[in-house]
Nucleic acid binder design. Structure first.
Lengths: 318, 318
DNA sequence: CTGAAAGCGCTTACAG
DNA sequence: CTGAAAGCGCTTACAG
């Protein structure tokens, strides 16, 4: 592999000049810069990241942290985020390092090692939980981090999120406007995730504005019977806004079994189902994970002042 | 951060001795090794990976390459693999670097940069396609790589895979033995993926052995009508072996709509569906992605002779 | 069993 | 506008 020393020798320049030229240092004449770069190209020069990182006392890597426990459904979202993150990192000549484990301790050790041994100074967390030990750690260290999902009330750090209230309202509006649904119900998990609360709020607002009576289904994980009961108790329902695609699909199927000849329109979130499992009555709000990943990287590299912590809201679409 | 120089000073030893002691070099007395390690602990010494990598001319990182295009269903599998890979890497003090992109060129550039700039010498590919440019590249470079999935006939390299023929047979056997299914059909996608062919072969063998007439469904992506037709033409079917969970679930639902009061047992592969979408008649063969990831790392670090390329078969379970 | 020294390939303060 | 030199924190061949 050619090094800057090789370029220097070949051109009768010093190593320092070559280094500066390649880094576009103003102090080197434009002409020299051009010539050096051309020669670098010719020799197939590739910078040695390890050497650079050693001198810089900082790795050209972003640590991407996965949550310890996640629902199967979320994995699709994570891979979308990875795509966006890496696309943005490539153009910055940065590398994507993953921290993933089966216990909090494991992930915590992983992240610590990234900070102290690998000298990584920038992190993206694919989640945003309250009282998360990784977040606690990162706040104390001289590093920058961005979470996917907003912090709990009272907490403050860089994050990327969707506008879930609006996503809830838009999903509801979509069913009413496009498919003339009159009585959409709102279905959520029993877990009360922050994004669910927001989407529910959006649904409630939209229903209030249209003078319709809202109905909330808390869909149990296992108990099919209870779900059937809910469906039977609400003969008026002709649409479903579900906090995620899985919940939506589940209701859709039970509804079809109970009312084989009634039509119903469903909208879920995340585009997490393959075509094989859906049809033209099933819709999904795209939260654009790739764009969220890209936004996270951009946020991570903006040198924001500590006083005004920023965030980015990524648009959704149906 | 404490360095080996700090340890050396503090103990009145040379830097070389400390370095050797920490690396458990035989030439250093056991006593000195112990004392050095203790001091390292006390000072909170953490090795600087960048320095080490620079001297070693090799990064302590494994490049994990995602396929460019993948089905939504596969993402779940990938995250499982990542979990296994990283678990194994942590114990080796190695780091997981991801290459993921939206075009072959992008991924190829990413991998090239990992080799030449980051000096990564070990790779795991989460796929095994024929004529893949990344694989072509890696074969020419002085690096080691392992693929998830066996290479096409005639090709040879390190890989981890399941025994899909047996997985096909086992799935079939499972339905017949445990649920007294008499006429399971086999459902596959129109794509003819290698693992599908293997699972089908396993199904066929099992059916032949039990003297039953096999039936193959090629399930179209979109055309629900055609699927209904297939179900109607086979009134004898009381079980489904599906090459993946999605295909299985799709048939399950259509069957339920067409025959609301008939029972049917389904087995798919990959455990890619959340509990919310399945019930006690739906089963799935676990291919143990985490174990596959671990096996891949182990293979990657075995210094196998070039003449006898190895592979690992990970057991499945139902 | 231990040490002095060179070197890995960069960046950058200092000097001119 | 350019260069000589120091230094980042390790490992290892060479010497004793």
């Amino acid at each position: 592999m050619a090094t800057i020393r090789d370029i220097a020798k070949k051109m009768g320049l010093s190593v320092s000049t070559v280094s500066r030229a390649l880094n576009d240092n103003q102090r080197i004449s434009i002409d020299t810069r051009k010539r050096v770069k051309k020669m670098a190209q010719e020799l197939g020069y590739q910078p040695n990241y390890n050497a650079r990182n050693l001198t810089n006392q900082e790795a050209n890597a972003v640590g991407v942290v996965f949550p310890v426990n996640n629902r199967v459904v979320d994995n699709i979202f994570y891979v979308g985020l990875l795509r966006g993150i890496n696309e943005e990192l490539i153009s910055k000549n940065y590398v994507l390092s993953v921290a993933i484990g089966n216990s909090t301790e494991q992930v915590l050790e992983n992240v610590k090692s990234m900070i102290t041994r690998a000298q990584i100074k920038r992190f993206i967390l694919l989640y945003s939980h309250i009282n998360d030990p990784v977040i606690e750690l990162l706040r104390k260290q001289p590093v920058t981090f961005v979470t996917i999902g907003k912090p709990a009330a009272g907490q403050k750090w860089l994050y990327v999120d969707n506008n879930n209230v609006r996503a809830g309202a838009d999903g509801t509006h979509f069913l009413m406007k496009r498919f003339h649904v009159s009585n959409p119900i709102f279905a959520e998990s029993p877990n009360g995730w922050p994004y669910e609360l927001d989407r529910r709020e959006g649904y409630l607002r939209e229903m209030a504005q249209k003078n319709r009576k809202p109905v909330i289904f808390a869909v149990p994980d296992e108990d099919e019977h209870q779900l059937d009961q809910l469906i039977k108790e609400n003969p008026q329902m002709d649409g479903v806004v579900a906090t995620d695609d899985y919940t939506g699909l589940k209701i859709y199927h039970r509804f079809k079994v109970l009312h084989p000849d009634k039509e119903i329109e469903v909208v879920g979130y995340n585009k997490s189902l393959p075509n094989e499992l859906t049809d033209q009555h099933f819709h999904s709000v795209d939260l654009h994970p790739k764009e969220m990943g890209q936004a996270a990287v951009q946020l991570l590299f903006e040198n924001c002042t500590e006083t005004r912590l920023k965030h980015t809201i990524v648009e959704h679409s149906i």
